[in-house]
């Protein structure tokens, strides 16, 4: 059975590192993995959408619409934008910290108030929390991505994989402890 994961967020939020660690972990567990990334242009703060699929043998690198088992959501609006990818009973791990698009910043558009409610209405299960604030508590807002990764790992029952080791081998030494801590927090939020 192929499992489908979708990561959605904004450039610079660490989606790439999160998907990289997740992929390395899945590979170490012997899965075939395929991944596909669609990003906006080169300017800062563009949309990023990463498709990740794993199983015994994976053909297509794209998650078919309506078949994502889980969405790892770095930003509410981007989750809602891509919600049609989710299975009816699919899971969303949601960072509730918002990242305003330019239209909202300039006062032209209004950020939809009920994004979270709509996501909850459409998804099978939603784990939502302010991952950015949680990361801030650890002293570094950047590890927001690793907190979300922890939640994903737990909710997808991938805990048999030695994630601490994967962090040790792939993260700069000075950030290893911080990342491990962030992962633990993410797991505890399920």
């Amino acid at each position: 059975m192929t499992k489908n994961v979708l990561l959605t967020g904004i450039g610079g939020q660490g989606t790439i590192t999160a998907s990289k660690l997740l992929t390395i972990g899945l590979m170490s567990a012997g899965y075939d993995v395929k991944m596909s990334e669609v990003h906006g242009m080169s300017q800062r703060e563009g949309q990023v959408l990463t498709h990740l699929r794993y199983g015994d043998k994976v053909y297509s690198p794209v998650v078919p619409m309506g078949e994502a088992d889980i969405i790892m959501g770095f930003e509410e609006l981007e989750v809602l934008r891509n919600i049609d990818y989710l299975k009816p009973d699919g899971v969303v791990v949601l960072n509730t910290a918002r990242f305003n698009p330019i239209g909202v910043l300039s006062g032209k558009d209004t950020y939809p108030e009920n994004t979270k409610e709509l996501i909850e209405k459409r998804a099978g299960k939603v784990y939502s929390f302010d991952a950015t604030a949680e990361a801030q508590k650890l002293g570094n807002p950047k590890v927001m991505n690793i907190i979300l990764l922890g939640t994903i790992i737990k909710s997808m029952q991938l805990e048999d994989i030695d994630w601490d080791k994967i962090i040790e081998e792939n993260v700069k030494p000075q950030f290893v402890e911080l990342n491990k801590e962030a992962l633990k927090i993410g797991k505890s939020l399920v």
Binding site: I10, Q47, E78, L80, R81, D84, G103, V104, D109, P112
Partner: peptide, 20 residues
Amino acid sequence: IPIFDEAKDVMINRAPTFCA
């Protein structure tokens, strides 16, 4: 593909812009 219309109704654009 079933479309979740309620999301479409409230969706706003995230237009690319010149960086700060």
